[in-house]
């Protein structure tokens, strides 16, 4: 079985090159990146609205439940900030990592990618459009979780706006990973499994306060991109947060996002032509 080198699919080719004697017909228009990204985004958001609202409820209830359970465990203050922040970001992980890897896994194995692959749309538009839709779909759940957590633990609500930056950045990183898992997994069950494992890791390593973790676990925590989203939000509860660190955490999310979305785009292109 042969795969098309990624460069072949990506290279923009003038309409009638090397086809001999100039008898090649004119090609139809190519869909441009931003309009097609917007179209995919809109379609995916409507899909998510129809099919995923119950799942968003699940994700939100899960996070709320975790916070209620953790109330008996953590001593308040700094630890509570991690719990609330972690529980909020878990909503993003649930949707962006878990559901998106599942979606792309199923799309690929059911032959659904053929639909996109036979349209003249840039691969990045399909991957970014879906990732952005899934990420923005998590905003309400994340907000509800954060507000509930702050009220529960008596934390201030003034820094809630930070989530408006954390959700898209952590969302980019996690949905890129999710999409890449879905598109690279050799079987759809594995795609689902990978997404769920990632989401479990985000859950376990995200909501527990890091001070209580053993060294090895803390190292694993540092490897997880969602951690930096958790850190960024958790840092801003204090009276005078260190904005440089916050920005640093967000930059890590953004960096991972760029890389993972690039990998996912490459994986899409690879999966589209077999």
């Amino acid at each position: 079985m042969s795969a098309v080198p990624a460069g072949v699919a990506a290279r923009p080719a003038p309409a009638a090159e090397d086809t001999g004697a100039g008898r090649a017909a004119e090609l139809g228009p190519r869909a441009r990146l931003w309009p097609s990204l917007a179209a995919v985004y809109r379609a995916q958001l409507s899909r998510a609205r129809v099919a995923r609202i119950p799942l968003l409820f699940v994700a939100t209830f899960q996070s709320v439940g975790i916070m209620i359970m953790m109330r008996g465990v953590v001593s308040g203050g700094g630890e509570a900030e991690y719990v609330v922040s972690g529980a909020s970001v878990v909503v993003v992980a649930y949707v962006a990592l878990n559901l998106l890897s599942q979606y792309f896994g199923q799309l690929r194995f059911s032959g659904g990618l053929d639909h996109y692959a036979t349209l003249p749309v840039p691969p990045a538009a399909v991957v970014l459009g879906a990732a952005a839709a899934y990420a923005s779909f998590t905003v309400p759940g994340t907000m509800v979780t954060a507000v509930f957590g702050c009220l529960l633990f008596g934390l201030p609500l003034g820094n809630l706006w930070v989530l408006l930056a954390v959700v898209p950045l952590a969302g980019a990183a996690l949905s890129g990973l999710g999409a890449a898992c879905g598109l690279l997994a050799p079987r759809p069950e594995l795609a689902t499994l990978l997404g769920q494992l990632g989401m479990s890791a985000a859950l376990l390593l995200g909501v527990l306060p890091p001070d209580r973790m053993p060294e090895a676990v803390r190292f694993a925590r540092d490897l997880l991109p969602s951690t930096y989203g958790v850190e960024a939000y958790a840092r801003t509860f204090g009276g005078s947060p260190n904005w440089a660190y916050v920005a640093g955490d967000m930059a890590v999310c953004a960096g991972v996002g760029v890389v993972s979305l690039a990998v996912a785009t490459w994986a899409y292109r690879r999966a589209a032509v077999r």
Partner: peptide
């Protein structure tokens, strides 16, 4: 006039395809 084996990406600009699966549009 286009060589689809060498330039598979051109097919999308010449033809419309209705596959056996509809899973991309189902929802």
């Amino acid at each position: 006039g286009h060589d689809i084996v060498a330039h598979p990406e051109r097919a999308a600009r010449i033809l419309a395809y209705l596959g056996q699966e509809s899973s991309a549009l189902d929802e």
